[in-house]
């Protein structure tokens, strides 16, 4: 009687282990993260003060996120890189173009999981309003990404 109970409990344990092991194999699943409206976002410092332009652009383009000043209060973090090249004399004289060249790239990641949920790059060879243009371009596409997935 005791032996049969022991055997039964062993079988139950092994079957449970088998089910757990087979389910544990599927760890590479597509990311299902979406950016919810009203998410709290921390904009990390970006080179050349681009983060300030980004915050202004988020407000101007009415992106449905809440920008926080502290990373601890935020659910998402925005990081990136930006570069400006002012028009050289050669560009002004030879090409007749006095606008600056702007490049920027931003990533939007979930602070808890560490996964990047959205990213965007912009390049403007002759930017009319400099960093403001590239920041507004990033904000506009972020808004499209949030509203497009709802």
């Amino acid at each position: 009687m005791a032996d049969s109970r022991r055997v039964a409990s062993m079988v139950v344990f092994l079957v449970a282990a088998a089910i757990t092991a087979s389910q544990a194999g599927d760890k590479n699943a597509p990311p299902t993260q979406k950016i919810p409206k009203g998410a709290k976002v921390f904009v990390a410092p970006i080179a050349e003060g681009f983060d300030s332009y980004l915050k202004d652009a988020i407000t101007k383009k009415k992106v449905p996120v809440e920008v926080t000043t502290s990373r601890d209060q935020a659910d998402y973090e925005m990081t990136g890189a930006a570069e400006t090249q002012k028009a050289s004399t050669a560009k002004k004289v030879i090409m007749g173009n006095w606008h600056s060249r702007e490049e920027a790239s931003i990533t939007f990641s979930n602070i808890k999981s560490g996964e990047v949920v959205w990213a965007y790059s912009v390049h403007e060879e002759a930017s009319t309003h400099g960093k403001r243009s590239s920041a507004e371009s990033c904000a506009k596409h972020l808004k499209d990404a949030i509203e497009g997935q709802q």
Binding site: T79, E83, S105, W118, Y120, S121
Partner: peptide, 14 residues
């Protein structure tokens, strides 16, 4: 260098 990793991340998404 130059924050190129952000461009790679954006490229992976695009």
């Amino acid at each position: 260098v130059g924050g190129f990793e952000n461009y790679v991340i954006a490229g992976l998404r695009n």
